[in-house]
């Protein structure tokens, strides 16, 4: 590819520029209002899952932190938002921020352990911490409602005007706008000096200290940021459904989001979103036909994707377009 790069600044600028396909993609998020008004609840769930997957992408795709317990932060955000609305106040936006802060604080505390480990050890630690939190929420049923879930949330209308209606119109609008704003933040993080440092850690952790980089501090920071983002996703789910079940902290949710991100393609910012759309739409379709076989198909899909598209669907698409561009004059 012949780039018209003319200097160091232009070289860096070229990588952060918005591409037409990105703008087209975000315009498409408006489509459900007209194309599938009956599915706005599902669309809202997809947006929330996409946001959760995006938060995982920040640590997995950009900093190389593998996690099998990311639902911990999703669940914390959900419970924080739920409990706040039940016991204090139900204004959603402040609830979102507070839930996010709770997840970030716990994430930052945990990051002191996370930053020291890599690979298999990391998988075990994140898995362990996730299970720990799930069990804690289960036993603290006086607070969380335990296996019955948290009842009695009172969410106020958005801006005191838009009620969370049965059709999910408010829910989807709210979720997709929050997804978009959080995406903008994630995009900025990736294209910042800090984002470059994260890619440095992912590319070669040994070299980083040799260029004077405090890798552990970088890892702690991105882990806390990612936890904050996962907390926002959890809070969105709680607020848009007015309930929190133990499932938000489950191992299943941690595994699902990992599958979604790998399916879509990690380290590409849009991988989690694309993965969430495919995964959730497929599950919705399949669960109508044969719900018990859902994980059979997902298992098969995962094996096929990893075998033939090791960098996920977006990685595969990128390869095809690169080849196509090379052929074109």
């Amino acid at each position: 590819m012949h780039s018209a790069v003319t200097g160091p600044h232009a070289h860096l600028q070229a990588q952060v520029r918005w591409r037409r396909i990105e703008i087209a993609f975000w315009l498409c998020t408006l489509a459900p209002f007209v194309a599938a008004p009956a599915y706005l609840q599902l669309a809202s769930q997809i947006a929330i899952t996409a946001l959760f997957a995006l938060s995982l992408d920040l640590i997995l795709g950009y900093a190389g932190i593998v996690s099998l317990g990311h639902a911990a932060f999703f669940g914390l955000g959900a419970y924080a938002a739920g409990l706040l609305s039940k016991h204090a106040w139900g204004e959603p936006l402040s609830g979102l921020l507070i839930a996010s802060a709770v997840s970030a604080a716990v994430g930052y505390a945990m990051s002191f352990i996370i930053a020291r480990f890599r690979h298999l050890a990391l998988i075990m630690i994140t898995l362990g911490l996730g299970l720990l939190l799930h069990e804690a929420a289960n036993s603290a049923s006086w607070l969380t409602g335990g296996a019955d879930g948290l009842q009695g949330m009172k969410i106020r209308p958005l801006f005191e005007t838009f009620r969370f209606d049965l059709y999910g119109r408010t829910a989807y609008t709210y979720s997709v706008v929050v997804l978009f704003l959080t995406f903008l933040a994630a995009r900025r993080i990736i294209h910042s000096p800090f984002g470059l440092a994260l890619r440095g850690i992912r590319e070669n952790a040994t070299r980083m200290p040799a260029i004077g980089a405090p890798s552990h501090a970088h890892l702690r920071k991105i882990y806390a940021l990612s936890a904050a983002m996962a907390g926002v996703a959890g809070a969105l789910l709680a607020q848009t459904t007015s309930t929190v079940s133990l499932e938000v902290l489950s191992f299943q949710r941690s595994a699902d989001v990992l599958v979604i991100l790998i399916l879509g393609g990690a380290g590409r910012l849009y991988g989690g979103i694309v993965g969430a759309i495919i995964y959730m739409v497929a599950r919705d379709q399949f669960s109508g036909i044969s719900p018990q076989f859902w994980y059979f198909w997902i298992g098969l899909l995962l094996v096929v994707v990893v075998m033939f598209l090791p960098n996920g669907i977006l990685g595969g698409l990128a390869k095809i377009t690169a080849r196509w561009q090379r052929k074109a004059p």
């Binding site: 900025r188 910042s192 000096p193 800090f194 984002g195 440092a197 501090a217 970088h218 920071k221 940021l225």
Partner: peptide, 8 residues
């Protein structure tokens, strides 16, 4: 390199 809110 710790600055995450500014563009590279």
């Amino acid at each position: 390199a710790g600055t995450w809110w500014k563009s590279l």
